[in-house]
Design a protein around this nucleic acid. Structure first.
Lengths: 218, 218
DNA sequence: AGAACATGAATGACTATTCATTCATGTAAT
DNA sequence: ATTACATGAATGAATAGTCATTCATGTTCT
């Protein structure tokens, strides 16, 4: 891959720059079109139109339609993983790490609703299409949750009888479904903070009413 | 009335029976093929082959390819909803109702892994394909969770500060993701009971270590 | 000029759907 | 009981339409 220095906002007077612009223009367009139509219903010509390039131009940058989808995953999920890891590494308290993860995920999904949809729907579908694409970035992403939980168990803030493998899935599933619906429909009126706090509450304390605590210490 | 022998040895006394058989044979075949290949990659001829009918026969029972997918949802999810509602109605304790829902869901997903995959993947995709399909059965299904939570809040077993709309999504998402992965890969070694108890634990008590409780009696 | 880049109409492969025909079974007539 | 007729379920080859991909041609750089 050649994504070394290609950040937006800086004009480089080399011909290479032009090419990189097209590359990312096509990626962005693909995200948008895949989100709107789904991978299979999306036409190359739709993506070309959205990116304002000719159909044939797309084949100067990508091998085929699947390659576009794959590139979208690698590049876009990669960004999220990188950013999340970056933020979490600085923390040491598992509780806070988990809160950061949630907030970060919801923010990312809110910021780019199209990408959220592509990830949520096409990622699953894609296993069937691209036979040996392993979703490395995605697995890495979910793995972060598992590591946080394990860390919390070592330091004693999380129970030992919680299975981190199951927990990380349940945790991600909850986050994912909430943000999926949140993007699609009714629940638009909830804020990131509101959903964040609800999800943290679920996972840390559950939904049960707290037992009456006759506490010696409070 | 009857001819003694038919050439092929089978008697089909009622022509209608034959028809109903075909309908459900096609549905089952479709579930299998959609699960294996995904809706778009699946060919009508694949389904026909799997159902052991001719391509054209399918159009005697369904209007088109989408109609098959839609029927799969309506009929198969309908069955699950019916069975679940049936079991839950007999209960009055929200805690037990929730446990039944979880066990029921996991069992259903385990019993028919293909259906699980179709629901988990294609159901989401379908909004884009079938423009005005509202996933009525599916919404109804998730709604059950919301009702249980609300009931629990009225009787005081669940906190009032839990938002049932968000909670039902988080709850379903967790269940869904766990059973999705469970079907696909590694985690096959967990039992329904193990996963059930983990999920119940998450939602009722969270993952935090319980605060030291100094009981009133000591 | 030559190279690199871009275009979009034309190609060709693929597959959902149709429909003329066959076939199995039921009914009526003898 | 046998034959003739009627019904409509089932078939699968042919059709018709859709797109991903290519490539002959144009444009823009150095």
């Amino acid at each position: 891959m050649f994504s070394d220095f290609s950040l937006f906002g800086f004009e480089q007077p080399f011909s290479k720059m032009k090419a990189e612009n097209k590359h990312s223009k096509i990626i962005s367009a693909a995200v948008k079109v895949f989100a709107k139509k789904g991978f299979f219903t999306a036409r190359i010509s739709d993506i070309a139109k959205e990116a304002k390039v000719a159909d044939g131009t797309i084949y100067l940058y990508f091998n085929n339609k699947y390659d576009i989808l794959l590139s979208v995953f690698e590049e876009e999920i990669g960004k999220i993983v990188k950013k999340t890891v970056n933020l979490i590494e600085k923390e040491s308290d598992p509780q806070i790490m988990l809160e950061i993860f949630i907030a970060q995920h919801l923010l990312a999904m809110k910021k780019n609703k199209n990408l959220a949809e592509v990830i949520q729907i096409e990622l699953r579908q894609s296993n069937k299409v691209i036979k040996n694409y392993r979703n490395n970035k995605f697995t890495e992403y979910i793995g972060i949750i598992g590591e946080i939980i394990e860390k919390g168990q070592k330091t004693g803030v999380y129970r030992d009888d919680v299975n981190p493998e199951i927990a990380k899935r349940a945790f991600f599933g909850a986050l994912d479904e909430v943000s999926r619906v949140w993007n699609v429909s009714l629940e638009t009126h909830y804020t990131v903070e509101e959903i964040s706090s609800q999800i943290i509450q679920f996972f840390l304390s559950g939904i049960s009413s707290p037992p009456l605590q006759v506490s010696g210490k409070s």
